[in-house]
Computed example of a mutant assay.
Amino acid sequence: MAIDCLVLGAGQEVGKSCVVVSINGKRIMFDCGMHMGYTDSRRYPNFSLISKTGDFDNALTCVIVTHFHLDHIGALPYFTEVCGYKGPIYMTYPTKALAPLMLEDYRKNMDRRVEDEQFTADHIAECMKKVIPVDLKQTVQVDKGLQIRAYYAGHVIGAAMFYAKVGDAAMVYTGDYNMTPDRHLGAAQIDRLQLDLLITESTYATTIRDSRYGREREFLKAVHNCVAAGGKVLIPTFALGRAQELCILLEDYWERMNLNVPIYFSAGLTIQANMYYKNAY
Results as ranks from 00 to 15, higher is better:
Ala150Ile: 05
Met275His: 01
Ala125Glu: 09
Tyr173Ala: 04
Asp191Thr: 12
Asp252Tyr: 01
Tyr204His: 11
Asn58Gly: 15
Tyr177Asn: 05
Leu103Gln: 09
Phe68Gly: 01
Asp191Met: 09
Asp210Val: 02
Val82Tyr: 11
His72Ile: 02
Glu245Arg: 11
Thr200His: 05
Arg209Phe: 05
Thr61Lys: 10
Gly175Phe: 03
Gly167Trp: 01
Lys232Ile: 12
Asp111Trp: 12
Leu246Trp: 00
Met257Trp: 08
Glu81Ile: 11
His123Ile: 08
Tyr253Ile: 00
Leu198Glu: 10
Asp31Cys: 08
His35Trp: 06
Ala243Gln: 05
Leu240Arg: 04
Thr92Ser: 01
Val82His: 15
Ile73Tyr: 00
Gly230Cys: 04
Gly11Ala: 07
Arg27Val: 13
Asp135Glu: 09
Ala169Thr: 14
Gly214Leu: 08
Arg149Gly: 00
Gly158His: 05
Ile263Tyr: 03
Ala267Glu: 15
Thr53Pro: 07
Gly11Glu: 10
Leu246Pro: 01
Phe265Pro: 01
Pro262Thr: 05
Ala187Met: 09
Ala159Glu: 07
Glu255Trp: 01
Tyr277Ser: 03
His35Tyr: 11
Glu126Thr: 08
Thr237Ile: 13
Thr39Trp: 05
Ile23Leu: 13
Ile23Cys: 14
Tyr204Asp: 09
Gly186Val: 12
Cys127Leu: 11
Arg42Met: 06
Leu6His: 07
Gly25Pro: 07
Ala59Gly: 07
Val20Asn: 04
Ser202Asp: 14
Asp252Ala: 06
Ala160Tyr: 00
Phe162Pro: 00
Ala228Arg: 12
His72Met: 03
Ile132Glu: 10
Gly158Met: 08
Leu185Arg: 11
Phe162Ile: 12
Ser41Asp: 06
Lys86Trp: 02
Gln194Ile: 12
Ala150His: 04
Gln272Trp: 07
Met29Gly: 04
Thr53Ala: 15
Thr200Arg: 07
Ile199Thr: 09
Leu198Asn: 07
Asp40Ile: 01
Met36Lys: 07
Lys130Met: 13
Val82Gly: 05
His184Gly: 13
Met128Pro: 10
Thr53Gly: 14
Ala229Glu: 14
Lys165Ser: 10
Tyr173Glu: 03
Gly84Glu: 14
